[in-house]
């Protein structure tokens, strides 16, 4: 499943990033901590499929659907 599909307050483990992502975006996401094995929690979602708010490591990020859909996760 992808990061976009997890529900509010759920925690998941990152499996990996979609390899077809633009290299610059891939690099940035990795530096932000979106790397396999990292645990990630969905803090909230915005109405009308707006950006999702996530806690990863010591930071809170917001990603839109386009990108959250390309991060693979699995529930533990």
């Amino acid at each position: 499943m992808t990061l976009w599909e997890i529900k509010t307050k759920q925690t998941a483990l990152i499996d990996g990033l979609d390899p077809t992502l633009v290299p610059a975006v891939m690099q940035r996401l990795t530096e932000m901590g979106f790397a396999s094995g990292q645990s990630i929690q969905c803090l909230r979602r915005s109405p009308f499929k707006g950006p999702i708010v996530l806690q990863l490591g010591d930071c809170v990020y917001s990603l839109e659907q386009d990108i959250a859909d390309r991060i693979n996760v699995s529930m533990n």
């Binding site: 633009v22 610059a24 975006v25 940035r28 932000m32 809170v60 990020y61 917001s62 990603l63 839109e64």
Partner: peptide, 10 residues
């Protein structure tokens, strides 16, 4: 085609 996505730190 490679539109840059919305990524934001809060």
């Amino acid at each position: 085609k490679a539109d840059m996505p919305f990524i934001l730190e809060l």
